[in-house]
Amino acid sequence: MHNEKPQVFIDIDYHELSQRIADYDERGWRFVNICGSTVEGGVELIYSFSDGLPLENLRFTVSNEEIIPSVSDRFPNAFFFENETHDLFGVRFSGISIDFDGEFYTVAVPTPMNPHSADAREAAANNTYGAANYGECPVPEPAPVSAPEPEPAASTDTADDSSTGEEVR
């Protein structure tokens, strides 16, 4: 016997999602995975559920602006996948049990797997890739350099440096 045949992929409408989730929860199925994939105009999401041998994958597409209700109230271990999908694809979930708000994976570029997500477009418009990289740790600005004077005026220079407010110990 080879691998699972047939592979069960069910195309659903996004609005059926909560009904289907409730159905799986009542039947005692186990939550397996959320997988995102960038498509034209949005993200295609695949939710997988399993009850031992049977494995069903629900497939639907959401646009980049849609906000999806979280399933972590019924399936507590979904918080991991929802945070990950938010960080990598920019899909927004509302009501995740432990919400890292974009800080789950520290990525250099926002939503690296989906360059057209709302977060990526906003960061590109504001040119804030650098800020996303460093977070609360600001890059220190260099101290202003005054023009060198012919006679040794070291005392005046150090007075200028300390007046910029940076304390150097």
Binding site: N33, C35, S37, T38, S48, P76, N77, F79, F80, F81
Partner: peptide, 25 residues
């Protein structure tokens, strides 16, 4: 999970590891 797009490069490949499920536990 794998998704093909007709070229020799896969469109998407995803691994869901057991540890990510067990973190909540």
């Amino acid at each position: 999970f794998a998704k093909g797009n007709g070229t020799k490069f896969l469109e998407r490949f995803r691994i869901r590891t057991p540890t990510s499920q067990n973190v909540a536990g």
